[in-house]
Computed example of a mutant assay.
Amino acid sequence: MKSDNRRQGIMDFLVDAGAASVDDLASRFGVSRMTVHRDLDELEESGLLRKVRGGASIQPSSLFESDFRYRQKQAIGEKQRLAAAAVTMIEPGQTVIIDDGSTAGGIARYLADLRPLTVITNNLAVIQDLAGVAGINLIALGGQYSKKFHGFFGLLAEASLRSLRADVAFLSSSAIHGASAFHQDQEVVQAKRLMMAAATRKYLLVDHGKFGRSALHFLTDLKAFDAVFTGRGPEPGMRDTLDAAGVSLTVVADKD
C-alpha cells in the first residue's frame, strides 16, 4: 500500500474508532511500528490527528479539534434536536448565516420549508445540501478549503463577511468554559466573530458535552448570543454561572 493510501486508511479508521495504538495500526496495515510513527508524524503535522502515548487520537483536546467526519458522528440525535429547534428562529425571506460546525450545519435540511431564503455559509456540507435548491439564494464564502473543518477560511472568506449583512446567524463552538465560548483554531475563531458581527441576531448551538471544556482561543462571551441552544441542562454549578452572566439558555430536551 502506498504511503498516501495508508495514511488515508489510518484517518478512516480513526474516524470510526477515535483512537488507536501504534501496534494496532502496524498490524492492521501490515507495516513496521517505525513506518506507523512516520505516518502519524506526517498526519499530526498536517493537523489531522494528535499523537498520544503509544498511539494517536482524533478526539478533541484544548489544543486540537477533531476531524469534521468524526464530529459528524458525535451526539447525532441531540444535534438534530438543536437544529430543529433553532430553525424556528428563521422567517421566510430572511438572510441566514451558517458556520462551519456540524451542529449548526444541521439546520440546512430544514430550510427548504422556509423558502425563499438567502443563505451565507463557509460550510461545504451546507453548500452541497443547498446547491440548486429552488428558492434558496446560496452565497458560498470564498477562501482556502480546510479538509479538517470541511469549510472555507482565510482572507477571502473574511473579506466577504465584512461586506455582507444578515438577519440571523447560527454558530457552533467546540468548548464552553464558564460563560464563554472557546475554539482551538484562531482562523476559525476569526470567521465566527465576523459572522456574528454581520448578523442582527445570533444563536449558538452546542451539544451538552461541550460544557466544562476549554480550548486555546477565546471566541466570545455567551451573553453575546440571543440564545444558546443545548440538548441537556448543564450541572447546577455551571447553570448558576450562566444565569449570573445573563446567558439565555434554551434546553431542547429529548422527549423520550
Rank of each mutant, 00 (worst) to 15 (best):
M1T: 07
K2Q: 13
S3W: 11
S3T: 12
D4P: 07
N5F: 15
G9Y: 09
F13R: 07
L14E: 06
V15F: 06
S21L: 09
A26W: 03
S32T: 15
V36S: 12
V36K: 11
L40D: 05
E42K: 13
L43Q: 11
E44K: 07
E45C: 07
S46W: 02
G47R: 03
L49D: 11
G55V: 11
A56N: 10
S57Q: 03
I58W: 07
P60D: 04
S62Q: 12
S66D: 01
F68W: 13
F68R: 05
F68P: 00
Y70G: 03
Y70F: 15
I76G: 02
E78S: 15
E78F: 04
E78A: 15
Q80F: 05
L82S: 03
L82E: 01
A85Q: 08
V87S: 01
T88W: 02
M89Y: 02
M89A: 12
P92D: 05
V96K: 03
I98E: 02
I98L: 10
D100F: 11
G101E: 00
T103E: 00
T103P: 04
A112C: 02
A112Y: 06
A112G: 04
D113M: 02
P116E: 04
L117Y: 09
V126W: 01
V126T: 13
V126S: 04
V126A: 08
Q128N: 14
L130G: 05
A131V: 14
V133D: 04
V133C: 12
A134R: 15
G135L: 08
N137A: 14
G142C: 07
Q144N: 08
Q144D: 12
Y145G: 02
Y145E: 02
S146E: 02
K147G: 11
K147N: 11
K148E: 02
F149Q: 09
G154F: 05
G154D: 01
L155I: 11
L155F: 11
E158K: 09
S160F: 06
S160D: 15
S160V: 02
R162G: 14
R162Q: 14
L164C: 04
L164F: 08
D167E: 08
D167K: 06
A169D: 01
A169W: 00
A169R: 01
L171M: 09
S172W: 00
S173K: 03
S174E: 10
I176N: 04
I176H: 08
I176K: 08
G178L: 03
G178W: 05
G178R: 11
G178S: 06
F182I: 00
Q184I: 00
D185P: 05
Q186F: 09
Q186V: 14
E187Y: 04
A191G: 12
K192Q: 15
L194H: 07
M195C: 05
A199I: 07
A199F: 01
T200H: 14
V206I: 08
D207Y: 06
K210N: 06
G212A: 13
A215G: 10
A215R: 03
T220A: 15
D221T: 10
D221V: 00
F225L: 10
A227D: 00
V228W: 06
T230F: 10
T230M: 08
R232F: 05
M238W: 06
R239F: 08
R239V: 14
T241M: 06
T241C: 09
D243M: 07
K255W: 10
D256T: 15
